[in-house]
Amino acid sequence: MSIKLVVKKVPAVGLEADVIDPAALGKKGLSEIGRLQVWAGRRTMPLADPFDISVQVPEEKVEIHGDASRVKRIGQGMASGRIDLFGDAGMHLGNRMSGGEIHVSGSVSSWCGCEMQGGSITIAGNAAHYLGGAYRGSSAGMQGGSITVSGAAGGEAGCRMADGVITIGAGCGDFAGVHQKGGVIVVHGPCGARPGAGMTGGQLILNGRVESILPGAAYLEEVQEVEAAGTKLKGPFLKFKCDLAEETQGELLILTEPNKHLRA
């Protein structure tokens, strides 16, 4: 069953919409979906209040149309199915998901794909902070699956990431791959300060300009190309072991051409 949700009016405090899970909604009738309770601040309301809901073709899929930038936790913990967002999405999109697909035509807010274990998220616009990261106190961020952002990402992308792939198309903020333990992060475009701080494993590939790196990054060699998650990236790249402040097996790879200042 394909469910279409069109945003009518989202309360100013935002909406905690973790009920939007294709597999769970697919088992319910239209009226039952409309009665599902969502939190708005300290009150609950039926899902039919902020959304026009309709049921369409037989497919395990949810479509959301309109400005959902204040609708939080869409696809939280989802295990299968597909969500298509035609517009922006709010915080915690697809966090802890273990399977299925989420496609966003606009941009997403912070904590997207946090601690996800599988599935894929593709974002045509930008992503804010903590993309594929870990919630405060957790030992591991993203643990599987893939996140692809065509635009830019904010700070702490891939924080404590343990596995999976994050690809960012147009640069990212500070602390990319902070405390990264595994997996692959590829950043095309400029990268902010302190990439790979505290990383202990995995690959952080910066395919754009980087102003500076931490002294805990130890230069190893120059490599001509890098294979990242099945894709070959043409270099050459400066390869560092990072971050020596930890017991690390982490690799920081930085495109040589715009970053010759880092070789010394």
Partner: peptide
């Protein structure tokens, strides 16, 4: 304070 991950578990709303 040091274990926010624990406080996130076992949640039930008011």
């Amino acid at each position: 304070i040091m274990r926010p991950e624990d406080v996130r578990s076992n949640v039930s709303p008011r």
